[in-house]
Design a protein around this nucleic acid. Sequence first.
DNA 1: TGTACATCAGTGAACGCGCGTTCACTGATGTAC
DNA 2: TGTACATCAGTGAACGCGCGTTCACTGATGTAC
Lengths: 221, 221
Amino acid sequence: MGHWHPFDRRGYHHGNLKEALIEVARRFIAERGIGGFTLADAAKLVGVTPAALYRHFRGREALLAEVAGRGFDDLAARLARALKGPGTPLERFTRMGEAYLAFAEEEPGYYAAMFAPRGKEEDACGPWGARFAVQADGGEEAHGAFDLLVKALRETFPEGFGGVDARFIALEVWALSHGIATLAAAGQLPTGPGLPSKHELLRAGVLALVHGALPGRREAL
Amino acid sequence: MGHWHPFDRRGYHHGNLKEALIEVARRFIAERGIGGFTLADAAKLVGVTPAALYRHFRGREALLAEVAGRGFDDLAARLARALKGPGTPLERFTRMGEAYLAFAEEEPGYYAAMFAPRGKEEDACGPWGARFAVQADGGEEAHGAFDLLVKALRETFPEGFGGVDARFIALEVWALSHGIATLAAAGQLPTGPGLPSKHELLRAGVLALVHGALPGRREAL
DNA sequence: TGTACATCAGTGAACGCGCGTTCACTGATGTAC
DNA sequence: TGTACATCAGTGAACGCGCGTTCACTGATGTAC
């Protein structure tokens, strides 16, 4: 009672099968990776025949794409929340970085689905695709996660970046975040005395990236 | 003639089966991804029964691990070459970044094998593992790719980083490189008018990361 | 140089498995009258 | 309120497939004498 549970089932009709499958796929991918995810096990977990899946999805790939889409939405929501919170622009911007790492850590299923090298199909969705659209320039409302990042940069550093496009900086920050998140997820970030946590790594790196592009800093080197 | 070709075969015994399998696996993974790689197809490509593979590898995972190992060796060799070339330390350091991106782009098979989320097995090899060992501190010879990066940083900026461990900076640079390389490989780096290439992205980012940590720069922000 | 033999790297057939997907079906639900 | 019917979301059995792996085997190679 209270929370709805994906394994609940009352009667012949499941009633929430689509949502349940997405939910189970997310957990599944988180545990075994995207290659280890099978329709058969997912169906068994929600207590349904594998064939029932085809009432809601065209097939395996469609399910994965939907999971990825949910992931992009969730990420954008988290980033938006971090950006809207209290504090100075710089604090909020820093919090966005934390939110990104937290998302990658807490939702490895989503993250893997989002950034897994998609098959041959069209990349109808992706960080810079429909749900993430890169704006030509500012003005319109920012929907996707990437646009949120650009918006945050413009708010945090209203003086600009000495003629450098904020989207340039945003890409740098994104690439660094993604690199740290994936190395950490793969267990390939070394830990040990004197070595930084991924959070320290991201915070210092983001500051350096922004800092390095700030006006009056570009003449050196 | 001249170059040895993995599909060559003279007689009952192949003679180069192990090397041929590694070579074919590399190309295969590059084209279809690590999940699309199968022993059956690999064996067929080199003109051999699938069972023959087991004379040289314990199984599929062992072959993949060997491919990853070759990749780490190749990457280290490329980075070492870039570092040993002519030019100022800064030029050589910048060239290491280029070499990294070039490796990821030219050897997607290696790259995927190296950084694919390994199964449950021990990560006996990895960027910071046996072939990549992170030195406790300087002194000993640098064998792995990561150590080469640290060494290059120390050579390029002998004045140090204001008390910050060079390995810290190296991790930042590595994470950024990895992030850019993987986003680019997945086709998730947006391109368009006014947006930078991955090479511009890496060069500017690395400079900012190094710059931001240089002495006399850490008081601002 | 020739023969016997050990060693090694292949063969080819077979295995068990589990996958994604299809199909005709049936049970449950909702709506019209 | 009750009945007939259309719609929908499941079932369950079956499919073809291709995978990784095994096994007893055999052809080729190299070495001892």
